[in-house]
Design a protein around this nucleic acid. Structure first.
Lengths: 231, 231
DNA sequence: TGGTGTGAATGTCTTCACAGCA
DNA sequence: TGCTGTGAAGACATTCACACCA
């Protein structure tokens, strides 16, 4: 790994991993870059570039061995060993995420949830205990929690983030529609659901602006995408 | 509007809008580009470029008038008039989104939800009726629904998407971790929660790779961000 | 022949810097 | 003086095309 990985390159790695796991389930042993690219927004060249950036995983004339590449991608993404994760804010969204099975399978174990509402504290949702937020530092410390999912209302987000940082959490996935102010040593990833809907709205209203690479297997798809007559 | 709007530029417009609404609530009448940029990942120049792309909204020496700019941004994003939206799949995530208040405030009215499970059909969640998915075409047609939120399991996503398209839906926000195959005239926006966690994991493991622009108001923040010694 | 890894070319986005208006 | 709008420069990302390996 040399210089610097682009933001979107990392997202593509996740997609490659998902694709490879799918292929692996179909007992495929070896794949080419173009086979990985299928069902992904990427091109074959891009797959090769992204992978080659982290090492030489492929063999010319053969392709990539699926199982080792899956392991390598997990190492790169940091999910080869499971993370312990907490959820702060057990409203609708928080509860949904507590029940969301896919996290565990992908290497993210939710070990506890926190809220301030007395009627929520003490409940068990999706197999996870809801505790008073006062106990957060203790739990984070004891269980070596390093990631947090923040699903509190917007005005509670910054204080919650501060508490998480002080407790030793190293990364926060924030669903509150607020910009958090955090030191550089705490990673932050923002998920703004209304912004996603707004983008969808925009795309529906501006059809010429579509960038979608096609998702199915058909090889030769080279339609013109840059459109929009001026004015 | 001339050529083409970048993917991330649209996301920034959402952030500007959020920021402007925040300022508007504080009875601010006029703002400069750098004031909009505060609490955003953007620079002042980028704010100006993004806005100027859609027209001349600002006045030199003065700045932008908040209220008209909010209206203009809503027009651009397409949320000046509310959209009617349906939710397909009333599992944990679907239920959470049905209860999520912010959608309505942002111009997205959820008018119905659909599922196949008999025990869910007939319920009312967050004020929204859950119906049999068989009634989807009828409801979409009657209520002129144009957007859909897809929160079904991965293997049910493609059939559901096909049904939505046939029913006349023009945009789909997909939470299932699958690539959907849709014609170009249906907009698609993918939200992959595990991919977001994977990126967070990556960022925690590769601290030098951080791109975050800072979120607070302090003006002079020009730290070195491009790091990583080679090899 | 089939496929990787990679420099070079191209394309896209962001930042700079400044003319010009209030 | 304060601030926008914008060409030009620069940084960054993607695609091309081909040497080379199995």
């Amino acid at each position: 790994m040399k210089g610097h990985v682009s933001h979107s390159a990392v997202r593509r790695l996740s997609l490659y991993l998902r694709r490879l796991e799918h292929l692996s389930a179909g007992h495929v042993e070896t794949v080419s870059s173009s086979r990985i690219a299928e069902g992904t927004e990427a091109t074959d060249a891009q797959v090769r570039k992204d992978l080659a950036y982290f090492g030489q995983f492929g063999r010319p004339g053969i392709g990539y061995r699926v199982a080792p590449l899956i392991r390598k991608l997990k190492n790169i993404l940091g999910t080869a060993r499971p993370w312990r994760v907490v959820v702060i804010g057990v409203g609708g969204l928080g509860q949904a995420l507590l029940r969301y099975k896919a996290f565990g399978e992908k290497g993210f174990d939710i070990v506890a949830a926190f809220d301030t509402a007395p009627d929520k504290i003490g409940q068990t949702i999706g197999g996870v205990k809801v505790m008073d937020v006062a106990r957060l530092p203790e739990i984070v410390d004891e269980q070596e929690v390093r990631l947090a999912i923040l699903t509190v209302p917007a005005d509670a987000a910054q204080p919650a983030a501060d508490l998480l940082r002080r407790s030793g959490v190293r990364g926060i996935l924030n669903f509150a529609p607020t910009n958090l102010d955090l030191p550089e040593n705490v990673a932050l990833n923002q998920v703004d659901l209304t912004a996603h809907l707004e983008r969808l709205s925009f795309d529906v209203r501006h059809p010429g602006n579509n960038h979608r690479r096609n998702g199915n297997g058909s090889a030769a798809e080279r339609k013109k995408l840059t459109t929009d007559p001026k004015n």
